[in-house]
Nucleic acid binder design. Structure first.
Lengths: 186, 186, 186, 186
DNA sequence: ACCTAAACGAGACGGTACGTCATGTCTTTTT
DNA sequence: AAAAAGACATGACGTACCGTCTCGTTTAGGT
C-alpha cells in the first residue's frame, strides 16, 4: 500500500491555466518578493492544496508560467548579413526584457533560479539551452567557441537589465558591433 | 521644528558591526530567500528595533554588509600587456564569485537590487560605478565605448554565475581573447 | 457576497479546551497584568492565530474560561431559615473568592470588564444576571427592591476582596446579620 | 561608597506636576490598559528616566495622580438626621464616580491595586482608611460593627460602578434606606 | 558669583509581546 | 479522486513599549 502520485490524467486543465495566469498577474502586480501562494490561489479561485499538489514551490509555478508564456519563440533570422541578423535578434531580446507582460515574470524566474540549483538545472535544460542552441545556429559559420560568443553577445543585455539599467535597441546595436569587431579594431 | 532622523552620533558601532557580520553569516548559512531580520538580530545579539532603526529593509543590511566586505579593492594591474592585464582582472572577479565568503552575499545583493530600484540606484552609485570606472581606466587606450566594452568583458562572467553555471579562470581567458579579437577574426 | 465569519462547525474542540485551560493556568501563575496571548498559545500548544480567530481579546478568552469554570453552579439553599440560608450562600461566595483555582481568573475578569464595556455587557448578561436571579429567588418573600438587597448582601464581599482585603466566613455572617436587621436595630 | 537614593530636595516640581497631569489625561484618553510610561513622558515633555527615577510602576504614578486629585475632601455632614446625612454622603460618592475627570483615574487605580498587593496596602493606608474613618465618624452613634456598616453602605455603589452599571443618586437613596431599616422591616 | 554634582530632555540599546500574514499540512464537503 | 474551502501549528513580519543605559544641558545648592 503505497501513497500514489497525483494522477495527472484527472488534473483539471481549468485550474492549471487559472493558476499560471494568476501567478503572472501577481508577479506583475506585487513583484516576486511579495508573491505568495495564497495570493495566487485566491486570484485563481482555487484551493491552496491544488497548487501544492502539482508544484513543489512558488518558483516552480513561476517557471511553468514563464514556460507557457514563451511557447512560441522564433529563431534569429538568417538573411546572410550576420551583423544585421544579430542586431535583429538582440533587439528582440531587448523587446522581451521591456515587455511589461514578460519582464516581471522573467525577473522572478532569474531570482528563483539563483537560489535554487534544482530549478536552475531545469531552467538550463528547458529554457536556456534551447535558446542558446537557436542563437548558436546563426553563428555556426564563425570559427570560435560559440558558447562564449553567445555569452558575449547576450550577457551584457541581461546583466544590465538585472541591475535595473535601461536596455535599449541602440545599446544592443553597440554590443553587436563591438563584439563582432573586437575591442582592438584593426 | 521638524522630526529628525535617528542621531547617528549616538549610534553603537558595536551593534553595527555585529549586525553586518551576522547578516553575512546568515546569508552564507541559509541563503537570501530564508534570510530574516529576526535571525540576523538573534545571531548579532541585538534587538530587532536596532536593525529597523538604521536600515529600511533586509536588502539594505546585506548591501552594507557587502560594502564593508569589499572595502579594500584593488584596480586592475597595468603591465602594458592589455590582454594579460584583462585576464588577471577577470580572474580576480572569478575568484570573488567563487569565494565562499563573498559569493552568497553578492548573490543576495543581486537579488535584492533586482527587486528594489532604490537599492539598485545606490548599488550603481556606491558599488558598481566605482568598479566600472576602475576597469575603464585600464581600457582608456582603446578607441571604443568603454561602458559597452566593460559589459562585454564582465557580463558573461556575472550572467553565467547568476544562472548557477561554473565560472572558471579558463572561461575568463576565453572571454578576454574573444572580446579583444572580435567574433570575426580577420 | 459578504466576508463570512469563521465557520464554527470546523472548529477544533481540542484547541478550544486547551486554550481555556491554559488561560486559567497562566492567569493563576503570572497574573492578569502579565497574561499574554503568546503565553497562552505556547502553553496550550496552539498557534496564536487560533486564538485570534475565535476571540477578540485576551479579556474575552478569560471570560470564556471563567464561564467554563462556573458551569455547574448551584442556587442558594432554601431551608426556611432565611438568615441561615443567606449565611450559607455568602459563605459559598467567600469560598469561591478564596479558591486558588477560581480567584485569579475572577479577578482578571473583573479587571477586564472594568475597561471594556462590550465585555461588561456580556458579563452582565451571561454571568452576573443569572447569579443575581438565583440569589433573588431566595429573597422573594421579602417586600423590598431585591436588586438593591442582593447588592447590600454581596457587594461588601466583592469590594473587600477586590481591594485585597481578607474575606472570611465570619465577615460574611456579620454582613448577613447587619443587612437583615438594619444598622439601627429596633 | 554606596549608591545614594535620589535627592528629593533637587527634584523638579515642574516635572512632577507635568507627569501627574499627563498621567490623568492619558488615562482619561486611552484607558488604563493602554496607558504607557512612554506616552506619559511624551505628553509631559519629560524624559522616561525622570519617571523611573521617582516611581516604581505606572500604577504608582496613577496612585499619586489620584492622591493629588482628591486632596481637598470633605467629611460627611452631620445635621443630626442620620438618614439624610448618609444620603448626602453617598450622593457625593455617586458624583465622584460619575465625574469624567476623576472616574477613569479611579478605575485605573482600582485595577492597579487589584493586581499589586504592595500598592493595595498603600492605597488602604493613604486613601481608603482615611475615607472610612471619616464615614465611620458619622455612624459612631450606632451600636454595630462600623467597618461592616460602612461596607454595606458604600460597597454596593462601588461594585455596581466597577461592573459598568449606572450609579444614580436614587440608587444611593435606596441603599441608605434599606441598609438602615434592614431587609426584614419590622 | 562660581563650581560641581544632581536631575533633566533625549533617545539608543537588548528585549518581549503585539496583532497580522503566509507557510505547508490536514480534514471536510462538493463535484 | 480531484477540487474548493478553510482550520490548524508554525514562525517571521514590522510596531510599540519595556526598563536600562549613556549622552550633553540645565539648574540648584554649597563654598
Amino acid at each position: 500500500m503505497t501513497k500514489t502520485a497525483p494522477d495527472s490524467t484527472r488534473r483539471s486543465e481549468r485550474a492549471r491555466k487559472a493558476i499560471l495566469t494568476a501567478a503572472l498577474d501577481e508577479v506583475a502586480e506585487v513583484g516576486y518578493a511579495k508573491l505568495c501562494i495564497e495570493g495566487i490561489a485566491a486570484r485563481a479561485g482555487v484551493g491552496k492544496q491544488t497548487i501544492y499538489r502539482w508544484w513543489p514551490s512558488k518558483g516552480a509555478v513561476v517557471f511553468d508560467a514563464v514556460l507557457d508564456l514563451g511557447e512560441g519563440e522564433s529563431s534569429p533570422p538568417d538573411t546572410g548579413d550576420l551583423e544585421a541578423d544579430l542586431k535583429t535578434a538582440l533587439r528582440a531580446t531587448v523587446a522581451e526584457l521591456n515587455d511589461p507582460r514578460v519582464a516581471p515574470a522573467l525577473r522572478a524566474l532569474r531570482t528563483a533560479i539563483s537560489h535554487d540549483p534544482q530549478l536552475a538545472a531545469t531552467y538550463a535544460e528547458r529554457i536556456d539551452n534551447p535558446r542558446c542552441e537557436a542563437r548558436k545556429q546563426r553563428l555556426r559559420e564563425l570559427d570560435v567557441d560559440l558558447d562564449v560568443a553567445v555569452d558575449i553577445l547576450w550577457a551584457p543585455l541581461i546583466n544590465r537589465w538585472l541591475k535595473g539599467g535601461e536596455v535599449t535597441p541602440e545599446y544592443a546595436d553597440r554590443v553587436v558591433e563591438m563584439a563582432l569587431n573586437g575591442l582592438c579594431p584593426r
